[in-house]
């Protein structure tokens, strides 16, 4: 199966007063057709910046410095602003973590869906009554798709009249209005309660199957990835440290950071046993030496880690960025 999105050697830099920050440093991503790819990482791991780069949404003082972003074989970095606008929303759509600030508080939900449709949907009748009716029908259909009842009347309501879970659904509805091939969901459930989170995630999984699109789920929650994603990519300090099929990565993590992350999650079954957190904190990316970025916190670090460390194959469909893979045969 060919890849829908292929990112090669992406590097995104932010120029700050204190110096250059390589927020994304040599990231490769492959999103296959119809799959759900989970991107896991803590704050500062570069997971959101990676996909902001894909969408062409990195703003000053940030800049995509290097790399290829191939969407269905086309390099998005080579597109003009105008061409890129046509891709955004129509072919790749993105939802944000905070639905309250991502939706325009001054426009009704119906108006916001209409904006998305008018920007991209060429199947709409040219003008007049047929066009309005078509937009209306599609809007009602979209709200129905994301499980919002009595869509007709709710189109006239404003974002603040909806609960957090409903707002996240509306944002998904707007993102899906033009049937994109790829949905990037940036922390779609972080702001939501656990029962509502379950509803929204099931909705995304359900729609993915029905529309046959690909989904990139950016999250800090390994549990969410475990339940909803086929493959997972673990990011740390601007780099991918491990990727592979979700179940295998969780069962036999190959990178010390992934292992530490899994050991950090408190579980009822481990009560009474001491938790083994990863010591220390995410390193300052300014002036970072070209070494393994997990070095300062790694329990199994060695001298070889002070040289640049590349991704290595780590079993079928798996890879990890750790020199230990050379020592212990997989």
């Amino acid at each position: 199966m060919s890849a829908l999105l292929e990112v090669r050697g992406l590097r995104t830099v932010f120029h700050t007063r204190a110096g250059e920050v390589w927020a994304v440093d040599g990231v490769d991503v492959e999103v296959r057709r119809g799959e759900c790819l989970g991107i896991v990482g803590e704050s500062g791991s570069g997971k959101s910046v990676t996909f902001a780069s894909v969408m062409g949404l990195v703003r000053s003082p940030g800049r995509v410095a290097e790399g290829q972003i191939l969407f269905e074989g086309r390099d998005l970095r080579a597109l003009s602003l105008r061409e890129m606008r046509a891709v955004r929303g129509k072919e790749i759509a993105m939802t944000m973590q905070d639905a309250l600030t991502a939706l325009n508080p001054a426009l009704t939900v119906g108006e916001q869906i209409r904006e998305a449709l008018e920007a991209h949907d060429e199947t709409l009748p040219a003008r007049g009554q047929p066009r309005r009716a078509a937009i209306r029908a599609k809007s009602v259909e979209m709200l129905g798709l994301v499980g919002i009842p009595s869509a007709e009347s709710r189109l006239r309501q404003y974002p603040h009249e909806f609960s957090g879970g409903m707002r996240q659904r509306i944002m998904i509805a707007i993102a899906l209005a033009c049937r994109p091939k790829l949905l990037i969901a940036d922390e779609p459930t972080t702001a939501l309660d656990v029962t509502i989170q379950a509803q929204v995630l099931e909705l995304i999984t359900d729609i993915r199957a029905r529309l046959g699109m690909s989904v990139v789920l950016i999250t800090h929650d390994l549990g969410v990835v475990a339940e909803h994603c086929d493959r997972v990519m673990v990011m740390y300090a601007g780099q991918v440290v491990e990727s592979g099929p979700t179940a295998e990565v969780i069962a036999t993590p190959r990178h010390p950071y992934t292992r530490g992350l899994l050991a950090s999650i408190p579980r009822p079954g481990l009560r009474g046993q001491p938790i083994r957190p990863i010591e220390g904190q995410v390193p300052d990316l300014i002036g970072m030496a070209p070494q393994c970025r997990f070095y300062s916190r790694c329990p199994v670090r060695r001298e070889a880690c002070l040289a640049p460390v590349a991704m290595r194959p780590a079993g079928a469909g798996r890879s990890a960025r750790c020199v230990l893979l050379d020592e212990v045969p997989a």
Binding site: S163, M166, D193, T195, A198, A226, E227, I250
Partner: peptide, 25 residues
Amino acid sequence: QSLLSAVPEIEPHGRKPRVRLKGDL
């Protein structure tokens, strides 16, 4: 019961049957 069933489980064998709650708080 519904709260517990909504928690995403990392271990596949730990997964509980999901109880879906209607609507919002």
